[in-house]
Design a protein around this nucleic acid. Structure first.
Length: 466
DNA sequence: GGAACTCGCCAC
DNA sequence: AAACGTGGCGAGTTCC
């Protein structure tokens, strides 16, 4: 695998990007070390308590007995798999890549053993303590962490981050998010502003394939791709985002079908996630009352049964037809582009990005589609990062860029500069960038989140301005 | 005793 | 035909 900048623009992006990122690294992010140590001790107490409870369960006694009354290591997946799948002879719900029975959260939940749910809880708390809080303490100097951003490590020419990794700090799980992000602060008297490109990868993919239906979804705010797919996949007449049960199904559609399809997933995985993971249904025949609630007081199983789909296998076949429609009707031009792109790769041995980089070497079919999209999308962020960094220095602002997460930028803002900073950011990302790169044929959008002065990264709130 | 591996899990 | 893309990192385990 080999990727090269093949134009001087691409080279400049790497050169200037390295310098701009280095300035953010040097600036760093303040951590509240007292808070971190306090939370770490709190978590330790919780973990110790839960561990003691776990070691008093019948399951644990059985486990210990099975290895000659030695103490098993409850954090060893190897030992746990041996106990569950060899000693107790349970059927592994899923297997790992190397063919062993899985002991991840999904598998343990499927086994439906209460003690294992407790083990999942312990693992989560340990992850927060040992991966995040511990690394903040370990990596800080004088109460500031300086995450590193690399431009030379990722196959798609995205960035990566380490020491500590600033790009995977918990966000989706509320509890983990608050514990970790409450540790991070801007300089005294300053405030965090985070700027996110909206659906950047989808927009950049459209710049490659120019599919008319996709362009419509991007440019017409009255359309909703995820809702359209949700109505099909869950057999609804319409999907109304203001109804909580419908919003849930729309999210399920987005995360289990639309995005995975864009990455190259296929209907069998999608069907499983749509109705088993999110819909809480089982394989085989469905019984009334099963599954997540629906708006009219019934449940998902009742709904599917009323539509003539009474078991999982029939639903999988249904999703196969939707997938076929998705690529061969709805996004036909996108589909043609994927095929053409793969053929080009087979003929030439490389694919070119819109940003002047070339991916060559051994790639799978999915790779040839995903790399150029992922890379060019990140380059939009990097170009904006460089531009903003230059304005900050030229205008001698007190505001600083402190980090970047693939399609977002984190700023440590002097409140007196908030107005000019937010307007400048908006201008660079949505106007200057498409002007500089005419291949960007779709509108770009950014969302901003702001924390109050002296508040943490956990305290961001939607920020709008005239 | 360290390197390299597997697995699990966090982000986009 | 193929079958979800990119990372970092901690812990346990195995190899040398």
């Amino acid at each position: 695998m080999n990727i090269n900048p093949t134009s001087s623009d691409a080279y400049r992006l790497l050169h200037e990007g390295t310098l701009a990122l280095a300035r953010a690294e040097q600036q760093g992010i303040r951590i509240d070390i007292n808070y971190v140590e306090e939370q770490r001790d709190k978590l330790t107490q919780k973990i110790d308590h839960l561990e003691r409870n776990f070691k008093n369960t019948k399951l644990y006694y059985h486990w210990r007995h099975s290895i000659g009354n030695k103490e098993p290591n409850i954090y060893s997946n190897h030992q746990l798999a041996h106990f569950l799948y060899k000693v107790k002879k349970l059927t592994p719900p899923t297997n790992t890549f190397s063919g062993q029975g899985s002991t991840d959260e999904e598998a343990l939940k499927a086994l439906d053993i209460p003690e294992l749910v407790e083990l999942i809880r312990i693992r989560k708390l340990k992850k927060v303590r040992d991966t995040y809080l511990e690394s903040f303490v370990k990596e800080q100097t004088h109460g500031v962490i300086h995450p590193i951003f690399n431009l030379h490590l990722v196959r798609t020419f995205r960035s990566s981050s380490d020491r500590p990794n600033f790009q995977n700090i918990p966000k989706r799980d509320k509890e983990s998010k608050v514990i970790c992000r409450k540790a991070l602060f801007p300089r005294e008297g300053h405030q965090f502003l985070e700027v996110d490109f909206g659906s950047l990868e989808v927009r950049i993919s459209a710049c490659y394939h120019k599919d008319p239906q996709m362009l419509q979804y991007i440019t017409d705010p009255t359309t909703d791709m995820h809702a359209d797919m949700g109505t099909q996949l869950y057999l609804l007449d319409k999907l109304d985002r203001s109804i909580p049960e419908h919003k849930y199904l729309r999210d399920a559609t987005k995360n289990s079908f639309v995005f995975p399809q864009f990455y190259g997933d296929y209907y069998k995985n999608c069907a499983h996630n749509l109705v088993i993971r999110w819909g809480k249904l089982s394989e085989g025949r469905w019984k009334p009352g099963q599954g997540v609630p629906m708006p009219n007081g019934i449940h998902l199983a009742d709904h599917f049964i009323s539509k003539g789909i009474r078991h999982y296998e029939k639903y999988v076949e249904y999703v196969r037809r939707i997938e076929d429609d998705f690529w061969n009707n709805r996004f036909f031009k996108y589909s043609q582009w994927k095929e053409r792109w793969w053929r080009n790769y087979l003929n030439r041995g490389y694919v070119d990005m819109l940003t002047g980089f070339r991916c060559s070497g051994l790639m799978s079919r999915n790779d040839t589609i995903n790399y150029p999209v992922q890379g060019a999308a990140f380059h939009c962020l990097l170009w904006s990062f460089i531009e903003l960094d230059q304005v900050i220095r030229k205008e001698n602002w007190d505001t600083r860029i402190v980090g970047q997460i693939h399609d977002s930028i984190l700023l440590d803002v002097n409140p007196a500069e908030l107005d000019v900073v937010s307007h400048t950011v908006k201008h660079i990302t949505t106007e200057a960038l498409p002007k500089a790169w005419p291949w960007i044929i779709v509108p770009l959008e950014v969302e901003m989140d702001l924390a109050e002065v002296d508040h943490s990264w956990a305290d961001l709130k939607k920020f709008t301005f005239a």
